[in-house]
Every structure is written in C-alpha cells, then in structure tokens.
Amino acid sequence: MKKEQVPQDLGPLGKITKEVCYATDSSGKYTTQLSTGWEVKKEALDVAWQDVEARVANAKQKVLNGEASPVLFFMEYRLMDAGILSDYTGFWRWRIKRHLKPEVFKKLSEKKLQKYADAFNTSVADLKTMTVHEA
C-alpha cells in the first residue's frame, strides 16, 4: 500500500484518535501514515453492532414475554456469554442458565442480584427493570 492510498474515511475511532498505518513512500521505503479510518472496516464494525442490537432486542422481547429473566437482556447488552458472566460473578455456568428462568430469577436473594448488577455495571433496580442509562 502506498502512502497516498492509506484510506482517510472518518470512522468511529477517527473522531477520538487517528491510527498508525504502515505504507510505502515514493521510493518504496516503508513509513507510517495516520489514518482517520476506512469505510470497509467501519462497515464491518457496523455489521457487528447490528448483530448485537438484534440480539439485545430479541432478548428484551423474551423477557417481556416471560420467557427469560432480565439477566439474559443484560448479558446480550454487555456482550457477555455465560462463560464471561461466570467469571465476573463467580456463579457456575449452570446456575447462570437457571437464573435465566424468570421464576428462578424472581426468588434470587438481594446478594445474588447485587453480584449480577456489579457484573453488568448497573444497579439492582435497573437490573430488574431492564433500564439502561448509557447512549
């Protein structure tokens, strides 16, 4: 890639920092060039987030239908799988899977709910109501 060809499309990172790319100058020697982003990878990132949003919306609907507990919603919202959540809370995976059932979730102690709230960086009240404060 030649220095002049380093893409300069404004991506999400470009608003905060430019990134270093390696490219060749007119004599073919490698140098670095700052880039504000590339449309192709911005679109790849968009696809990833669209997938996340679809999963979050799906999880939310399931909770509203009484098919899952708010833990599922926050797992999707925080991009976690049972493994990551297990590491953050200290609960075994099979227990987390049980806590995904609304009837089991309702009976959880305040202490267990607090663990989930901490892992999701939210409060117990917001956990129960699926309230998120971040844009």
């Binding site: 990172l13 790319c21 390696y22 192709v40 790849a44 990132l45």
Partner: peptide, 8 residues
Amino acid sequence: EEIGTGGG
C-alpha cells in the same frame, strides 16, 4: 483491519 494491525 481493525485498530492495531497497521493495515492488511
């Protein structure tokens, strides 16, 4: 291509 690869 994401951040940190230097491209390609």
